[in-house]
Design a protein around this nucleic acid. Structure first.
Lengths: 215, 215
DNA sequence: CTTGAGCTTGACCATACGGTCAGAAAACGA
DNA sequence: TCGTTTTCTGACCGTATGGTCAAGCTCAAG
């Protein structure tokens, strides 16, 4: 029977498998190239080379550059949103905001390219995900603001404007991904070590939690 | 005598004046286009149109696109650096850091395009100002870190890691420029009003100053 | 007025890029 | 094995872009 021995793949429909595999390769390569070169600076050829595929093959899976970019941005957005689960089932700001900071710092560390693509997209006026900003993100933000406001009303934290507090959290955590190169340069050209990441996370948590009066 | 009545210009050397004027027009247009489209997405034609000049004229003043971009980035960097003057002659963290936050928030408001260009440049690995990062910015950072450490040693503030505190300050203040579009969208599509800018600045100041234990 | 240096500009060029396509190859079902 | 569907890919095309150039124009100095 046609069982390829040296390739340890799940042989659950080879067609489907090939498609999934290639789409992932392309999306990973695209995420990195879009992050490093920007949308305008990225070329399909560069993405193809990094994915190890001929350029024409990219257009088989993703009809246009914009379609590919759109998919990359949406994938990141999904990761963003799920990061807030920690926020929800928390009894108060210490646990909720603390966990949120840790989750977002972890994302900055694991998905630096994605964070940069998102930042680029927003900086350029969100040409492809404006609808998401106006629907999903707006709803999401309103929900968390309500939670924070509840905590304020219950006297569980200092009366801080929930909106600007959220912006501060986003800004600080994403900064470690988006400005990673600058941070690395100021770190003697070396990427942050595990210990330094912990230190960064702890510093952010401490300053914020004390800043909202819960430490 | 050839005195143009309807143009109120200083006639101090018309050649020099024309050159200064045009360079400024071009640099202003370039800053905006680079910010909105990214380096790769920006075209000389777009910049020329916005500056109200023929494209060929741009190449007379700036030989290449990269040279023009380089000048834009350097101009912004200068503004960054001078923002820290408020930092220096302060007796303690309340005045120093408070003033620094206000200065940087004001820059975010006045120079949103410049901030975005800087962010883009760093996100893409600082291809044109890496030397600045390694020299000027590194020195600058070391100096401010020393000041903060002194305050910590003197017991004027809580023992917060100066490096990460600086990153937090940069992140939060620049966020209001770099992610201005997102903030505007979440503000009902309206730019922040004067009052909202004040509110933002105050929130940041309050949370940070309380976060470092000086309120 | 004359002259020459600085400024302006339409037309042009080489290149690189996104995208297309026809046909080969591989996988699949019967 | 054979026919069909899906995947793969080199070669190709139209366009847009950064950059060039030569000719013309403006201005100030002599």
């Amino acid at each position: 029977m046609p069982q390829n021995a040296q390739v340890s793949r799940i042989s659950k429909g080879k067609r489907t498998e090939i498609r999934r595999e290639n789409e992932r390769m392309i999306l990973d390569a695209a995420e990195r190239v879009f992050a490093e070169a920007g949308y305008g600076g990225a070329t399909m050829q560069l993405i193809a080379d990094l994915a190890g595929l001929p350029k024409a093959n990219l257009h088989y899976y993703f009809p246009t550059k914009e379609a590919l970019y759109r998919q990359v941005v949406r994938n990141i957005f999904e990761i963003w949103l799920h990061a807030a689960d920690s926020f929800d089932h928390a009894p108060g700001p210490v646990e909720g905001i603390g966990a949120y900071i840790e989750a977002k710092m972890e994302i900055s560390r694991r998905h630096p390219y994605g964070s940069k693509v998102w930042a680029s997209e927003v900086m350029h006026g969100a040409p492809v995900i404006q609808d998401y900003l106006e629907s999903t993100l707006r709803d999401w933000t309103a929900g968390r603001m309500a939670v924070i406001q509840t905590w304020v009303d219950q006297g569980k934290m200092a009366p801080v404007d929930p909106r600007h507090l959220l912006y501060m959290l986003w800004a600080m955590t994403q900064h470690y991904a988006d400005f990673g190169h600058q941070i690395e340069t100021l770190n003697g050209g070396q990427p942050l070590t595990d210990a330094q990441w912990r230190e960064a996370t702890e510093t952010v948590k401490t300053v914020i939690l004390r800043g909202i009066g819960v430490l």
